[in-house]
């Protein structure tokens, strides 16, 4: 039961407290680029979640059974980027084959997951910062992906409101978007400390 509870805590804290986009400011490029329309934002969020979980499932064993064994911890970044890039390519092929509509609407942002720092950040954090075991790593990655999805969905809502409102000329476009993003980010800081107390 304790193990289950700790997994829930990991999941909730990675979705809400340590939200990768809004609290740690990783993966801002797709966050600003694809959040214009809700369906695209959801598609991108799901794609990132998928890549994060699969990437963790592959990189965790690589770190523990290959890099650590050969004492190659310093090669972590390069190897992880290599693996993640291949995985994204694989995901793109699968999407193109099975969900062509989503593939078309994601457009250039799908290959951009290759260099999405959120994906690399999650896989490295699992190992170096949290020192999670395999299952905990997977749960954490899932949480981070869901957090990304949540941020994308919330922000696409905010952006559709921005589009409908009258903004001073100098703030139109990116400035208004960035200010709105900072507000959403501030709102997420309100979750700090909530999760620990919830399950205490």
């Amino acid at each position: 039961m304790d193990a289950f509870k700790s997994l829930i805590i990991i999941l909730m804290s990675s979705v809400l407290v340590n939200n990768y986009v809004l609290s740690r400011f990783l993966g801002i490029c797709p966050f600003l680029g694809v959040s214009k329309k809700l369906n695209q934002a959801v598609g991108m969020g799901i794609a990132v979640t998928l890549v994060m979980v699969v990437a963790t499932a592959v990189t965790w064993p690589i770190q523990h059974y290959i890099l650590n064994v050969f004492d190659l911890g310093y090669m972590q970044t390069i190897v992880f980027i290599l693996v993640i890039a291949s995985l994204v390519q694989l995901t793109e092929m699968m999407l193109k084959r099975y969900i062509p509509a989503l593939h078309k609407s994601l457009g250039v942002y799908l290959p951009l997951i290759t260099t999405n720092c959120a994906v690399l950040g999650v896989t490295i954090d699992n190992i170096t910062e949290h020192n999670f075991n395999f299952v905990e790593s997977l749960v954490n990655s899932l949480g981070c992906g869901l957090g990304f999805l949540l941020a994308m969905v919330l922000f696409s809502g905010v952006r559709s409101r921005i589009n409908d409102s009258e903004i001073p000329e100098s703030f139109k476009g990116l400035p208004a978007t960035l200010i709105a993003a900072s507000f959403v980010s501030l709102a997420f800081f309100g979750f700090a400390g909530v999760v620990d107390k919830l399950f205490a």
């Binding site: 690589i62 890099l67 050969f70 190897v79 290599l82 291949s86």
Partner: peptide, 14 residues
């Protein structure tokens, strides 16, 4: 060893 490991991983991905 580093060279070999990265090369093998890259090859598998390829």
């Amino acid at each position: 060893i580093a060279f070999a490991v990265v090369a093998v991983i890259g090859l598998i991905c390829a």
